[in-house]
Design a protein around this nucleic acid. Structure first.
Length: 788
RNA sequence: GGGCGGAUAGCUCAGCCGGGAGAGCGCGGCCCUUACAAGGCCGAGGGCGCAGGUUCGAUCCCUGCUCCGCCCACCA
């Protein structure tokens, strides 16, 4: 029997947390067995950047997964939670480049091999951080299956996927206009370009007889035509003509074409066509055979084709051209203009549209399948509203540019033979040209980092091999993620999973909110409003922190996290701790077998009934991914029913020696209810529940292995709830009078209750309970009158 | 330009199928009552963004509007 004196009256999380995680891990409780006959339940973790560290988003995301996983494990499922990390191509390369810059060096100084070597070193150095932090959070991942997107196995999966898509004609190379980041020196997918509204100037420039407006006069040097709307009668006579246009470099000839893409209402209704530097113009140019003229280079400077402007930065060039045009009297007017510019999502440099040869995936046929999967309910998106967003994007999907001019990542498995000009895509590195035997050089680009993460749900399970893990755990049960990577990641996994596995990668997609600060701002280092999850865990304990996240995880768009919420739930942990202390301190002489033979009191029946309801609500909440409902149900039960009422009521039989049977039964109810409440709470607060559970009478090695409480309909006792409700109302009414009349709790009130019918009997029967809870002397008189 | 969220107590937010307006924090009062002052008990506080409509009845459904936030988009 535990000595209550030994239990501190405040819950101290640090030592408890340090004790149990190693225990669970060492006993192999997180380990999943592909050969188990139990029903599978699988989640793959959204892999964090390997060199990152835990932020609020991770904390929320992984807490929710851990809640599900722990609950399912207790519920008897064969649970697999696959952990791992992402190489995060551009992000990680960017970090290492910055490290080099601090040493006054560039990646070119090192050369490709040495640079990649250096990134690997950085990965080895910092890669353990986020894993340790996830463990600190209590994440019960199967660490024996930890994966990294650049592991040999996953790299093989990447190559297999690439080769197969290429064989099927879905991967191809194309000269197309791309989003180029002159800072990062790489192409970006459409998704990697952020839009930002900026103030700019709208220059109205004379083009011979016509005038048109542009915000980018420097691209004028790349103009190869003019375009108007086909139905625009103002300009109909120019269509098809070659105009002589005086410009900064003398007179140039330009053909006028008619194209639907031109909006006659906007500007002057005339557009200059710069196929080399604008996506719309590129399309217009293709339709009308206008040549591409590249005047801005990959470095963001004007090319030789820009004549006297060659070598100038693109923005300097803009100034210069405007001056020159003005001098020539070619600027009609300038208006202020606000428009969206494209920025690199990594470094915020203004993206330059450029024509270059890149690798693409024709995702349209894959998207069709992925759309069907959601339509037919084979993938369930929760909350429902996101399905619309998903569909909209999928239905308007464009080819996915997958090559990146980076060094860190999966090298594209394509080889070029300069001798005969052939291209070879292969699973195994070829040593010579299969056609002519000549030397080969491998494509220098790497793949978009999302290509490998798109394979994650099956590559981590051993694909392309046919493994027992794939058989047992694919499709996974649910994917838990935030909406900001719905397109980047979820959509790609859906497409690639259906393509390669012939089945959806996950049955449910639960999309949770983004964590913001108390003011609703996105947390960022530059704003200085970052709340560090590790600090929260240090300050309030992991359980309190986790519970806060779960309690706030309502299905909105964002969560505003304020520290006092965490404090509030720290207090909840403390409350639970003290409930347990109270129970443990009163277990002398407890004998479960004998106690069971004593019929339950009203209070016993009531709390058991309330427990059954709480169990039902928690289960319903978790089943529907309404985590906050689940959290609130268990919170409400533990604090406001078990602690506030039942424990107080229990003191009557507990502290009086006159009815040993009653006392025994009360002990039994306390133990039973608390033990069940701990199990109910365990997925949310794994550490404190394990600690207390181990101290209570229990069966089994760990609460992790104990069954999750079930809601038995028979356990709901309507009559007991109704009767107890009446007693509670009377008690509250008496306390209310005490409060209003400012009568201290030391004074025992004399109260006469005018109760009719069965209420009188009820109150008589439970007089001792009412008197103890209300600290009053009770008289029940159906005919009492209000004193004057 | 399209789409999606939000607008409920001083603050942060719950309110699933239309009938009770709720929680946490904060605030006021009384209490260190042998589980807990990180606590107990009691309490104050809300025209549920605005205007219409449907209904016996609307915070909840419909229409329009106003603010805030976000996403997508080839108006140069």
């Amino acid at each position: 029997m535990s000595q209550p004196e030994q239990i501190p009256d405040r819950y101290e999380p640090a030592s408890v947390e340090a004790r149990w995680y190693p225990f669970w891990e060492a006993r192999g409780f997180f380990h999943a067995d592909a050969a188990s006959p139990k029903k599978p339940y699988a989640i793959v973790i959204p892999p964090p950047n390997v060199t990152g560290s835990l932020h609020m988003g991770h904390a929320l995301n992984n807490t929710l997964q851990d809640v599900l996983v722990r609950m399912k494990r207790m519920d008897g499922f064969n649970v697999l939670w696959v952990p791992g990390t992402d190489h995060a191509g551009i992000a990680t390369q960017f970090v290492v480049e910055r490290q080099l810059a601090a040493e006054g060096r560039t990646k070119e100084d090192l050369g490709r091999d040495a640079f990649v070597e250096r990134v690997w070193r950085w990965k080895e150095e910092s890669g353990g951080t986020i894993i340790r932090q996830l463990k600190r959070l209590g994440a019960s991942c199967d660490w024996s299956r930890e994966r990294f997107t650049m592991d040999p196995g996953l790299s093989r999966a990447v190559r297999e996927a690439f080769v197969r898509l290429h064989e099927d004609g879905l991967i191809y190379r194309d000269d197309y206009i791309v989003n180029w980041c002159p800072r990062c020196q790489t192409v970006l997918s459409d998704l990697e370009v952020e839009r930002e509204e900026r103030d700019a100037q709208f220059y109205y420039i004379r083009y011979g007889p016509l005038t048109l407006a542009t915000v980018r006069p420097e691209t004028k040097l790349g103009d190869t035509g003019l375009a108007v709307h086909p139905k625009d009668s103002r300009y109909a006579r120019y269509v098809g003509q070659e105009l002589e246009v005086p410009s900064v470099e003398g007179t140039v000839r330009m053909r006028v074409v008619a194209d639907e893409a031109v909006d006659p209402e906007f500007g002057t209704g005339v557009v200059k066509v710069t196929p080399g530097h604008d996506p719309v113009d590129f399309e217009i140019g293709r339709r009308h055979g206008l040549p591409v003229r590249t005047v801005i280079g990959f470095d963001g400077r004007m090319t030789a084709l820009a004549g006297k402007y060659a070598g100038l930065d693109r923005f300097e060039c803009r100034q210069r051209i405007v001056e020159d045009l003005r001098a020539l009297g070619l600027i009609e007017r300038i208006e202020p203009y606000r428009h969206a510019v494209g920025l690199c999502y990594r470094c915020k440099t203004v993206v330059e549209p450029l024509v270059s040869k890149q690798w693409y995936v024709n995702v349209q046929p894959l998207a069709a399948e992925a759309i069907r999967a959601v339509r037919e309910g084979r993938i369930r998106i929760i909350p429902r509203g996101w399905a619309k967003t998903y569909h909209h994007w999928m239905e308007n999907i464009r080819p996915w540019c997958i090559s990146r001019q980076l060094w860190w990542g999966h090298r594209i498995p394509a080889w070029y033979c300069d001798a005969d000009g052939t291209v070879h895509v292969a699973r195994a590195d070829p040593s010579a040209c299969p056609r002519c035997g000549g030397p080969l050089r491998q494509d220098t680009d790497v793949l978009d980092t999302w290509f490998s993460s798109g394979l994650w749900p099956f590559s981590t399970l051993g694909w392309p091999d046919d493994t027992p893990e794939l058989k047992t755990f694919y499709p996974t049960s649910v994917l838990v993620t935030a909406f900001d990577i719905l397109f980047f990641w979820v959509a790609r996994m859906a497409m690639l999973g259906l393509r390669f596995m012939g089945d959806v990668p996950f049955r449910d997609v639960y999309i949770h909110a983004l964590v913001r600060d108390a003011e609703g701002q996105k947390m960022s280092k530059s704003r200085g409003n970052v709340i560090d999850p590790l600090v929260m865990m240090d300050r309030y304990g992991t359980d309190a922190f986790r519970f806060t996240l779960v309690a706030l995880a309502a299905q909105g768009r964002d969560i505003r996290l304020a520290e006092d919420r965490v404090e509030g739930y720290r207090n909840f942990a403390n409350k639970l701790w003290n409930v347990a202390r109270m129970v443990l301190a009163n277990l002398d002489g407890y004998d479960a077998a004998r106690a069971r033979r004593v019929p339950p009191s009203l209070a016993d029946r009531w709390i058991l009934s309330r427990l059954a309801r709480a169990v039902g609500e928690v289960r319903a909440g978790l089943r529907r991914y309404r985590f906050n409902d689940a959290a609130s149900a268990v919170y409400q039960f533990v604090w406001h029913e078990l602690a506030d009422w039942y424990l107080e009521a229990a003191k009557v039989p507990l502290y009086r020696a006159d009815d040993p049977a009653r006392r025994l039964r009360t002990q039994h109810t306390l133990v039973t209810v608390l033990e069940a409440a701990l199990r109910l709470l365990h997925p949310f607060m794994p550490f404190i529940t394990e600690e207390l559970w181990q101290r209570l009478p229990h069966r089994g090695e760990s609460i992790m292995l104990a069954p999750y409480p079930r809601a038995r309909r028979r356990a709901v006792d309507e009559e007991a709830e109704r009767r107890m409700r009446t007693i509670m109302d009377v008690v509250t009414a008496i306390r209310n009078i005490r409060g209003e009349m400012r009568i201290g709790p030391g004074v025992t009130l004399s109260v006469t209750v005018r109760a009719g019918g069965d209420h009188a009997g009820l109150l008589e029967e439970h007089r001792a309970l009412v008197e103890a809870l209300a600290r009053a002397r009770l008289a029940v008189d159906p005919r009492a009158v209000r004193p004057a």
